[in-house]
């Protein structure tokens, strides 16, 4: 079965979705990603959807779930690279992805995650990590 590769990028994980998602692939991604967040001690997850021509409520729900699960594992999810036509369509569809942070591209998404890490490190400075 196909798997979507997950790359480590500093403290974060990068997932680039390039194929048409279907149920099994989405479920596999959720499982792989949660395992990787724990094993790589990742603090952020970047999901690059720049290759996706559409985002329907199925993909939207998957992104929301990933963000919620990652949050419970103390990692921030940022969806990056959404195409303009996809953004227009999503809003008309009624899906605003309110539980998911977004950034224009991978670079800006990384900045968002780094900023969040800096903030938490200041907040708990006595942490060993």
């Amino acid at each position: 079965m196909d798997r979507i590769p997950i790359l480590k990028l500093g403290n974060a994980l990068l997932v680039t979705i390039q194929v048409d998602m279907h149920d099994r692939l989405a479920t596999a991604l959720q499982e792989d990603l949660t395992e990787k967040i724990v094993s790589a001690r990742a603090r952020g997850v970047l999901i690059d959807i720049s290759a996706l021509e559409i985002v329907d409520s199925f993909i939207g729900r998957m992104l929301d779930h990933i963000a919620a699960i990652s949050r419970m594992l103390d990692a921030e999810t940022v969806v990056v690279g959404m195409r303009p036509a996809v953004a227009i369509t999503l809003v008309e569809l009624g899906l605003s992805l309110s539980g998911v942070k977004t950034a224009l591209n991978v670079e800006r998404g990384m900045e968002l995650i780094k900023r969040r890490l800096d903030e938490t490190e200041v907040a708990d400075g006595d942490d060993d990590e």
């Binding site: 021509e53 559409i54 329907d56 036509a85 996809v86 227009i88 369509t89 008309e92």
Partner: peptide, 13 residues
């Protein structure tokens, strides 16, 4: 492109 995206998304739903 926007209309394509809309109808493909509608078809998917």
């Amino acid at each position: 492109l926007v209309d394509q995206t809309k109808i493909v998304t509608a078809a998917s739903e």
